[in-house]
């Protein structure tokens, strides 16, 4: 028995087919002691779309992403994923259901090479037990090579062949961001969460990143949830936008709808009440 009704989805202006609801957030409330980070928010994410979450600093965007990735468990409300209510899970269990993410502050494993970092992303696809691994024999070796091939495809896709064996700690910021995306992509997620993928980048790097995000969505059909402060980027990339302010949802719709929403303008520009 499904916990939600299936529906058809819609077609975007540029003719891409967007599927039914992948994930539905229902009346999510998240508190830290007395502080209410997210207040009664509901929205949905559809298969194949680029969904943006925007809002001023401290609006609760990252907390929302943390709820989706299972790092925070909301006090109220439920997450409905692939039609079923998601029980309380540890973050690594959520990762195994096909949700991958990148972080606002780069969270790469600094002591490992780029290749090892991305291979770690394929963790949930590797099943060899500890003894096979210790002997480096049979399943362990076969798996290592099969997954290496998949990882090489991601490396090709993101154009980071030249730094494959470089320790991550030696890379510049922009490349680190790209490696982090590679690590998330290597997991072959159904839903990819990106927490400010363009933060701190120059124009050229931003353009590259935009292209990668669109290509990922296009080629693999990955559903993308995105937090970003660069409004130009958000309006260009996303199909639908959720706007948050002080933990509340103040707008939801296509970029055009959101752009003309009075409350959104108020939150961003500030309006004197007269």
């Amino acid at each position: 028995m499904l916990d939600t009704q299936p529906d058809e989805g819609y077609t975007t202006a540029d003719g891409r087919k967007i599927g039914g609801v992948a994930m539905e957030m229902k009346n999510i409330t998240l508190r830290f002691g007395g502080v209410v980070a997210i207040k009664d928010i509901s929205f949905d994410i559809r298969w194949g779309e680029v969904r943006a979450i925007i809002g001023p600093n401290g609006a609760g965007k990252s907390s929302m992403l943390n709820v989706i990735s299972g790092f925070y468990n909301p006090q109220e409300g439920e997450v409905i994923y692939k039609g079923y209510r998601r029980p309380r899970m540890r973050p690594y269990q959520v990762a195994r259901t096909g949700i991958a993410r990148t972080f606002q502050n780069i969270a790469l494993f600094e002591g490992m090479s780029v290749l090892d970092n991305i291979m770690t992303g394929r963790l949930n696809h590797m099943k060899a037990n500890i003894f096979q691994q210790a002997m480096w024999w049979g399943k362990a070796q076969k798996e290592e090579e099969e997954n290496r091939e998949k990882v090489e495809k991601v490396i090709d896709f993101l154009e980071i062949q030249h730094i494959r064996k470089t320790p991550v700690a030696r890379l510049p910021y922009g490349l680190k961001k790209r490696v982090e995306l590679a690590r998330a992509l290597a997991a072959e997620p159904s839903i990819l969460l990106l927490d400010e993928p363009m933060a701190g980048m120059n124009v050229e790097e931003k353009e590259d990143m935009c292209r990668f995000i669109l290509d990922v969505n296009d080629e693999f059909g990955t559903t993308i949830v995105l937090i970003e402060h660069d409004m130009g980027v958000v309006m260009d990339l996303s199909d639908r936008v959720v706007v948050m302010d002080y933990g509340k949802k103040i707008g939801d719709g296509t970029p055009d709808e959101v752009r003309n929403n009075e409350e959104v303008i108020k939150a961003y520009l500030g309006v004197t009440d007269d």
């Binding site: 195994r96 494993f109 600094e110 490992m112 291979m119 691994q133």
Partner: peptide, 23 residues
């Protein structure tokens, strides 16, 4: 192998490791 990468992930950043699927 995988296990070693899981160990190193825990060493380098345990929270990120858990979110990408390391138990």
């Amino acid at each position: 192998g995988t296990l070693g990468r899981q160990w190193m992930a825990i060493r380098d950043m345990d929270i990120a490791a858990e979110i990408i699927g390391v138990n």
